[in-house]
């Protein structure tokens, strides 16, 4: 137990998590600290490319096996399943309407790639290895949750018109997925030789860029919490903290069933615990425009994202280490 707490405390005091906390505090204190939009976009492109590329190189080193396919399948199943659990919890413990509950639920089946990147960085700093193909699992978990939420609504209203082909195309080909999967494939094709050529660009500066990016995300999350906090009642707020823990338990079970490494189990927990705030909100605005965006954005970005970054990741890494004996 002491070991778990010590690991959690070390992760909690890492530069990336402290940078995020600084951003949240600055936003809550109404500081004028801000990043130019283009800089934030550039940093997110860099991080997605780096994490995808390194994941591909790792797969090239270790080869493709059945566990990769099963992990992808598990990720897809979790993404379909978690919104149903989130929906049941929301309907049971909050006063949200069916529509708002379905929209919120979709966010909790999908993933936050920033949380995933931060978790990967924490694992690397702690010297805990993970499967490189978890990047592909992350990409696979982006979209299924949206279909689950739309199914929940169509089941209740007999309305099957919500998902149009254009929306499906936008979800499947959103910039983050294309860049993540594309760089993963490039990393897989070029392998260690490819990494050696661009290592000075994508390995050494990674932690520093991630610190600045999370400082910006902290500012965004803090502003979201400040502006949207008033719309949240205690029920949804509690849900925003409970659901990631529930999701991580499913991720833990899946990771252990698949026989993943300590890092792999931790990442599966992180993916299952995280909530989307980029792809899913956009999809919900198109498919369920009547749902209140203040509720689902504040919950995923203002409550669950900070929870996962500050307390969740250290907790998931510690639990995964304990469960796998790593």
């Amino acid at each position: 137990m002491d070991q778990i707490l010590s690991l959690a405390a070390t992760n909690l005091l890492s530069p990336i998590i402290l940078c995020f906390a600084l951003g949240v505090l600055a936003a809550l204190a109404r500081s004028d600290l801000s990043f130019p939009e283009a800089v934030a976009k550039g940093m997110s492109i860099y991080l997605l490319f780096a994490i995808g590329f390194k994941g591909g190189v790792s797969v090239a080193d270790h080869g493709i096996d059945a566990r990769l396919a099963l992990s992808l399948l598990a990720g897809i199943v979790l993404s379909f399943l978690l919104p149903l659990i989130a929906f049941a919890l929301l309907r049971g413990m909050t006063g949200l309407s069916r529509l708002d509950a379905a929209a919120v639920a979709a966010h909790y089946g999908s993933i936050s790639i920033v949380t995933f990147v931060a978790a990967t960085s924490v694992l690397e700093s702690s010297g805990i290895a993970s499967e490189g193909y978890m990047v592909a699992v992350a990409a696979a978990m982006e979209a299924p949750a949206i279909l689950s939420a739309l199914w929940l609504i169509s089941r209740g209203q007999g309305d099957g018109r919500r998902m149009d082909p254009e929306l499906m195309r936008e979800i499947m080909l959103n910039g983050s997925i294309v860049l993540l999967v594309g760089s993963f494939v490039i990393g897989g094709i070029t392998g260690a030789d490819g990494l050696a050529r661009i290592e000075s660009f994508i390995v050494s500066p990674f932690q520093g860029v991630l610190c600045l990016f999370l400082l910006d995300m902290g500012l965004v999350a803090g502003r979201g919490l400040r502006e949207g906090g008033a719309v949240l009642r205690p029920g949804p707020l509690v849900f925003g903290v409970i659901m990631p823990v529930v999701g991580s338990a499913f991720g833990l079970a899946a990771g252990l069933l698949l026989g993943l490494s300590t890092g792999g189990v931790a990442l599966m927990m992180v993916l299952s615990a995280s909530a989307s705030y980029i792809a899913v909100p956009a999809a919900m605005r198109v498919a369920l425009p009547e749902a209140n965006p203040s509720i689902y954005l504040t919950l995923s970005l203002g409550v669950t994202f900070p929870f996962n970054l500050t307390l969740g990741i250290p907790l998931y890494v510690a639990v995964a280490s304990f469960a796998t004996g790593g």
């Binding site: 965004v220 502006e227 909100p281 605005r285």
Partner: peptide, 14 residues
């Protein structure tokens, strides 16, 4: 739908 600002958005979609 309340107050919003571009600087408070994660992505252009919002």
């Amino acid at each position: 739908s309340g107050q919003w600002s571009r600087s408070g958005q994660v992505s252009r979609a919002s």
